[in-house]
Amino acid sequence: MKKERKINYRWYIYSALFAASIALAVFVHNTSYVRLWEALRNVVSSAGVYSNEFFKTSFNVTPGAAEFTAVDVEKFLPFTLDEMLAKLEALIPELFTWENFAAYMLFVLNGLTLVLAFLPIVVLCFYLFGQLILSSYLSETDKQGRSKPLNFYLCRVRPIKEKVKDFFTELVAFGKEKKLFRWLALIWLLNLNVISIGVAFLAFYIYFVACFSVLALLKNIVNLIADLIVMFAGLPLLLWLVIGYVILDTLRKYFARKKLRHNENKNKGFIKGFLSLVNLIVGFMRSGKNLTETDIGLSAEMIHRDMALEGMVEQWHKLPDFPWRNLEKEVERALFFKEIVDLPSAREYAEKKRKRFFSDMQRSKIFGYEWENFAYEFDNGMYVEDVFDIVETYTQYYMMYVVDTSLIVSNYAVRSGAIKNDNGHFPVWRDDFFDAPSIRETFDNNMSHIIDYDQFRLGKRVGKEKDVGIFGYGVALMSEKGKERGNAVENQHYKKTDEDANPRNDYFNLFLKVIAHSATVDYKTFVIVVGDEQRPESVGADEREVSTLLHICDREQNHLAMPFFEFEELIYSFLRSKFDPFIIEYRYNRDDGTLLTYLMHHLVHKFYGYYTRTYGKYGYDVVKLGIEKGTMDGQIDVHDYYISNHKTKARRYPTDCYRNMLAVKARRAKTGIADLPTYRDVRGDDDEMEKQNSFFVTEFQKHLKG
């Protein structure tokens, strides 16, 4: 039985669109095609002039790019081309005359008068709408459920609206999938004279380089104005406004992403230039310490990978003929089988390779490198490195670079932003700070490692495991550091000779002072420790004075990287200021649903979603960070640090990381604030004061009774 071939109806729709576009090209926009042909001929003649000028050929050409267009564009223009040239020549001096300025001011004021004449009518309409129509919706009623108009809309109108929306969504998706839009766009770029303008510019550029003619420049400006008028005459004004808005939106999003990336680069410069290996962020509660710490950690992780990559590229330059991919594959194999797990094991691995080579001197023992024919060593002007010195450095760099895990260890969960692109050749890392879609699930993402403080202890340790090792390289984030380490006053009851680990006998501070030694490769250090605390004095002086303090002096929220958003801001602000009080009052007085409220709420919902997503993608805070030495000498340099919403607030870390631990204690009582007893009067009596379980009240009462 023959299988019925079902033809997708969307092909018919697109065929009709293409047919209509081509018909319009032939019968309406034919001037654009004639102009394009002229522009192409001008490119050839300009190339001839260019060749005659620079290569001394003798082509007989008439440069069309030096003259007015011969195409009949004057039917679109209010003036002839000669008149336009005369106007252009006289324009600059005429701009600076009082008569012209006064005439323009009169014109503008006439326009404003027209607008002001309509303004009272518009204001009156809004006022009547608010007072007569909306206020009637605020009368108290016991009605429940939906009104009849709303029911009709939801049951009859909305399904049709959704079907129409789905139809166009699928039509657009089909066009994108079959790559039909690019051909349609090409036809319309030709129809609207856009491509002619580009080609005409090319023709003029080639001519102008050969013959610097001001008259030709002016004539081409006239040609350009004529071409632009032909372009704008090709579509109705409303359609141009829509196209203009789409182009503006695309451009402003591009500039927004550029600005966010620039802010991120400034942050990286700040971290590399001003932060030390051990840092402490200090500020009041809810001032953004954890937020800043997380942001620094995410950027530092990318900095370490960038540094490793830079280091590897330098090794490539030292031995350009070395088969680096062979070494990389061996390092990846060693990582998989746990022969390499950290920097010391990477160095041991390279040393083992060196010994194997020197016992045999075969190419297979030196990763297939033709060491007899190519360079065996590199002189950097200070010392000479042989192949295996470079291999040892490279092995360490590549290990840190390729390991497919977060480089962050922390005492609260951080969702890493590093993404590895690996198509079987050299892997490349990028971050998902600004381009990723909104996050849905955080479970099973690339998360930070749970910090084991024993890795930072050179003395006594809390855990009983012997094979803990020490923290090698990476980014360590320690929130509430003062509560972990304590200061001299809080630790005074501990003794160094205690059997159990305590802040005095664990030599944590000593490790922080020498931490760079375990994380340095080729004079570059791959470790940073960032903590936060409310008061710097909460951390002992021994540790604090080797840190850099970062004071959160101020945080300016709600900056927007996307330009030209002011009108949307005003509209959104107006809608919320009017609608929010209305809906609260409405819900206070009634529970039912009405069509007008439904439509208004959905309009506000659309704007709310658009506004929130814009700030979510392109919003950022500016934190004023005051840098001070840990010795707290009072010299504070304030720098700006940029925290992008999409980078750091997209479920990247929990702002309430101890919530679950506190909840365990809270749930024991099975009561809440509503269950707590209240005072009977403005002055509490003895029984009520005793219920406070207060140290002061207990002591006070003891003295009063004594």
Binding site: L88, A90, N100, Y104
Partner: peptide, 30 residues
């Protein structure tokens, strides 16, 4: 975005539109 920044930016756009409008107006007038 701060209100002062919104108003400041709108004034800048208005000035730019005013200037472009002036150039086009004079071009048409002469």
């Amino acid at each position: 975005m701060k209100k002062s920044k919104i108003i400041g930016n709108i004034l800048i756009y208005s000035f730019i539109a005013f200037t472009i409008g002036y150039v086009i107006f004079v071009f048409k007038m002469i």
